[in-house]
Design a binder for these strands. Structure first.
Length: 226
DNA sequence: CACCAGGCAAGTA
DNA sequence: TACTTGCATGGT
C-alpha cells in the first residue's frame, strides 16, 4: 500500500521536474526497433557509447529485424563494440530476435498486439531481458503504460525518503503506478525527466545545489548505487 | 590512476 | 534466499 503522502510526493516531483526541464521527447530513436536495440545496448553503459554503436548499425544498414537476424552473432558483436559487453549484448540481441521470429514472425506490430501483462511475462523469460529492459521496450517502443525503474529512479526516490535503499523493482514501480494516471505519455516523460535529473544534477552523495528538487521535503544522504 | 555508465545472469554459501 | 562476480568500452 502506498500512503497518500508518498503519492503526493511522487506527483510533486514530476511537476517540479517538468517545470524546470520541460518535455524531453523520449526515447531518442527513429523507430521502435531502434528503441529495443538501444535498450539492450544501454545496460550498465553510458548512452554516448551506445550512440556510437547505433550509428555503426545504421551505416551498415543493419537496424532492421531481418537484417540483424541474418548476420552472424560475431559480426553483430563487432558492430556494437563501442557499447561495451559486446559479446554478451550480441547474444542478448540474438535471443530477442529468436523470440520475435518464433513467436511473431519477426513482426513488432504482432508482438505489441499481445496483452501487455502477458507479453511482459514472456519477455522476462528471454535471456538478457530483465525488468528495466523489458519495461523500457514496452513503454518506449510499444507505447504501453508501464513505468520504467532504473538506478537513477532508485537513487532519487531513496534520497527523498520515499523508498528504502533496498526496495525491489516491482515495489518502486508500484509506487509510481499507484500515484499517477495510467498514461503512457506521462510515464514516458517522467522516466525521461528522472534520467535527465540523475545525469545532470544528482551525481553527488549529498544534496546537490541547483537541483530542481532542492527544498522538496526532507532529503537524506544516500550512497551511490552498487 | 580510479571511478562511473539509462543491467542481467550465473555462481557461491 | 542473499551476496558476489563477469561482462568491456570510453569519458572524466
Amino acid at each position: 500500500m502506498t500512503s497518500n503522502r508518498h503519492k503526493e510526493a511522487v506527483r510533486k516531483i514530476y511537476e517540479r521536474l517538468y517545470q524546470a526541464i520541460g518535455p524531453l521527447r523520449w526515447w531518442p530513436a527513429d523507430s521502435p526497433f531502434e528503441v529495443i536495440i538501444g535498450a539492450i545496448l544501454t545496460q550498465n553503459t553510458s548512452w554516448t557509447n551506445v550512440e556510437k554503436a547505433i550509428r555503426v548499425l545504421k551505416e551498415k544498414n543493419l537496424l532492421h529485424p531481418r537484417r540483424l537476424y541474418a548476420i552472424p552473432e560475431e559480426a553483430l558483436a563487432q558492430a556494437i563494440r563501442s557499447s561495451g559487453f559486446f559479446n554478451l549484448k550480441a547474444k542478448r540481441i540474438k535471443s530477442f530476435l529468436g523470440f520475435l521470429f518464433q513467436q511473431y514472425q519477426g513482426s513488432l506490430d504482432r508482438m505489441f498486439s499481445e496483452d501487455t501483462e502477458t507479453l511482459r511475462g514472456k519477455m522476462l523469460t528471454i535471456n538478457g531481458m530483465g525488468p528495466e529492459t523489458v519495461d523500457s521496450i514496452l513503454l518506449y517502443a510499444g507505447g504501453k503504460p508501464v513505468f520504467v525503474v532504473d538506478a537513477y529512479t532508485r537513487r532519487i526516490l531513496s534520497r527523498h525518503g520515499l523508498i528504502s535503499e533496498k526496495a525491489g523493482y516491482e515495489e518502486i514501480q508500484q509506487l509510481f503506478m499507484d500515484s499517477l494516471e495510467k498514461d503512457a505519455g506521462l510515464f514516458n516523460e517522467y522516466h525521461a525527466l528522472l534520467v535527465h535529473t540523475g545525469k545532470h544534477h544528482c551525481k553527488k552523495r549529498y544534496n546537490c545545489p541547483r537541483c530542481p528538487l532542492e527544498g522538496l521535503g526532507r532529503r537524506r544522504r544516500v550512497a551511490m548505487a552498487r
